[in-house]
């Protein structure tokens, strides 16, 4: 770890002001990616601004047909939330599959979505549920938010405050765990929103989370695993690395999508 100044922000406004004042500063949320990055000396911020204790960023609100989750809400809180489990059980189930218990006790929704790791779980729920990212400056639709591996629509100094998830008619998440890291080797979030079907794939895409539109169209016609027969994710768009080839990840994305549909249809 390189030396840095540690600052703790008491409010989103204060965090924004500190960011504006210190162009080389970075925000610290749950720290489950950022702290290991610092420890490996892969980042050298001048200041680390801790936003993990900002009260306005915590909490879960169910209102009408939406669930709004504060950016600093821990994965474990989402997994255990009776409100989330009632309104969007697939989201609570997803949170329960992130990392391990220690990671879930520290890691946050906002941290995950801001980082947009191509193998993270939450981006698939945000995209699959057509959620809205509420920031310190605006609201961003999920389809506009994710812009490639570790890349988002967030501007410099813009802070995620909460994410608003519309409650779907039915949804499920299915994930194949990477045996070392626990991230998704491939994960599929399938949602029947009432207005249509959305399928978001994480872990597999070389540009991060993406919608599998062919599967969405097929499932919209007939919401069944059989509707996916003959469909395949284009392996040309998938990650190939030490652990698995692009063909395996493309195949796995298909398997996880089928299983997510089967989870829903029973």
């Amino acid at each position: 770890m390189y030396a840095f100044e540690y600052l703790r922000a008491g409010s989103v406004a204060e965090a924004g002001a500190l960011l504006a004042k210190n162009p080389e500063a970075k925000l610290l949320a749950g720290g489950q990616t950022f702290i290991p990055t610092l420890k490996a000396r892969l980042a050298q911020p001048s200041h680390v601004i801790d936003i993990g204790r900002i009260a306005e960023l915590r909490g879960i609100t169910v209102s009408g047909a939406t669930v709004t989750i504060g950016a600093m809400t821990r994965h474990a809180e989402v997994a255990a939330s009776a409100e989330v489990r009632a309104a969007i059980p697939a989201l609570a189930a997803l949170a329960l599959e992130i990392g391990d218990q220690q990671v879930r006790n520290r890691g946050t929704l906002g941290g995950s979505v801001a980082n947009n790791d191509p193998a993270a779980d939450y981006p698939s729920a945000v995209l699959g549920l057509n959620a809205t990212v509420i920031t310190s400056r605006r609201e961003i639709a999920a389809d506009d938010y994710f812009q490639g591996m570790f890349s988002t629509a967030l501007e410099d100094g813009e802070i995620i405050k909460a994410i608003r998830f519309p409650c779907p008619k039915r949804a499920a998440y299915c994930k194949f765990h990477h045996p070392a890291s626990g991230y998704a080797m491939a994960g599929a979030f399938v949602a029947d929103t009432g207005a249509g079907v959305r399928v978001a794939i994480t872990g597999a895409g070389a540009s991060g989370v993406f919608r599998w539109k062919a599967a969405e169209t097929a499932l919209a016609k007939s919401f069944s695993a059989a509707a996916l027969d003959g469909l395949a994710v284009d392996e040309g768009t998938c990650i190939a690395d030490l652990h698995a080839g692009a063909d395996y990840r493309a195949h796995l994305a298909g398997v996880m999508t089928r299983r997510a549909v089967q989870k829903i249809t029973g």
Binding site: A40, H178, P179, A180, S181, L242, H243
Partner: peptide
């Protein structure tokens, strides 16, 4: 060494 951390070396 490609498997230089627990993120890549599975225990």
């Amino acid at each position: 060494l490609l498997t230089g951390s627990f993120a890549d070396y599975a225990m």
